[in-house]
């Protein structure tokens, strides 16, 4: 242990592609965030729609996905969709698993995006929805032009929390054999048991560096975007 801490860290970084692994998690997060935002918005619209069957379908999706462990979903995507059903999202082996993991992350977090958006919808006074209907806007137009724009602005903070959860949950993609941080950490611990504390610190600090700014940014944004009433 006469090596200094700095030397320990730098040897880790030269021996293993730590930044690349973080890059993979960020890429997983990026695509899954877009996917879950799209699916979650559709779900939220279904859940506030005047059509009972749509409301039911949206509610069932949320209850189902929100209460299923993420690992189960990711393993199902990797082994069930691909392994048994033969669904491939890319001919390249690695890319295929990456995309299956993104799919699993997106459908899971969509349930939480939906609930965050619904909390945003609740910040919009009912009277505005009535006023929208009263000037002849249909449900779709009222949702798109009046309710959702305000709902998003009222839901920045909870949406930020979903994003933070997603960043951290992206490590579950290891269950679909995506070479990301938690998988790399495992390899590193196996190979360099002499510096396990430095290894843990590397990843823990890495996530703090990624997640803390997201929290600060969403707090600032939610204050700036809040609708004056």
């Amino acid at each position: 242990m006469d090596d200094g801490y700095l030397a320990q860290f730098s040897s880790l970084f030269s021996q293993f592609d730590v930044l690349g692994a973080f890059g993979t998690n960020l890429a997983l997060t990026f695509f899954a965030a877009i996917g879950s935002l799209a699916i979650g918005t559709v779900l939220a619209v279904m859940r506030i729609s005047p059509v009972p069957s749509l409301r039911w379908a949206g509610g069932t999706y949320v209850t189902f996905l929100r209460n299923t462990p993420l690992t189960i979903i990711i393993v199902f995507c990797a082994l069930g969709l691909w392994g048994q059903l033969g669904i491939t999202l890319s001919s390249d082996f690695q890319t295929n698993f990456f995309r299956l993991a993104v799919l699993g992350l997106a459908v899971y977090h969509a349930a939480f995006v939906c609930e965050a958006l619904r909390s945003g919808v609740n910040t919009v006074p009912v009277g505005q929805a009535e006023a929208a209907r009263a000037i002849g806007l249909g449900f779709g137009q009222s949702a798109r032009l009046v309710i959702l724009p305000q709902a998003f602005r009222g839901a920045v903070a909870p949406l930020g929390n979903v994003l933070i959860a997603l960043i951290k949950n992206s490590t579950v993609a290891a269950a679909a054999s995506v070479p990301e941080t938690s998988g790399l950490m495992r390899t590193m611990i196996e190979n360099r048991p002499d510096v396990i504390l430095a290894i843990f610190a590397t990843f823990a600090l890495g996530y703090v560096v990624v997640v803390v700014p997201v929290g600060l940014a969403t707090t600032a944004l939610s204050r700036r975007l809040s609708v004056a009433r």
């Binding site: 009277g127 505005q128 009535e130 006023a131 009263a134 002849g136 032009l145 602005r153």
Partner: peptide, 28 residues
């Protein structure tokens, strides 16, 4: 929706669209 366009309604609590300007409220 078309019929509602023929019936104007003014509420006790105004119910203007809070994220839109006055002008956009009227043109929407």
């Amino acid at each position: 929706a078309r019929l509602r366009a023929d019936v104007g309604m003014v509420f006790q609590s105004f119910n203007l669209f809070a994220h839109k300007t006055v002008l956009d409220n009227v043109t929407l």
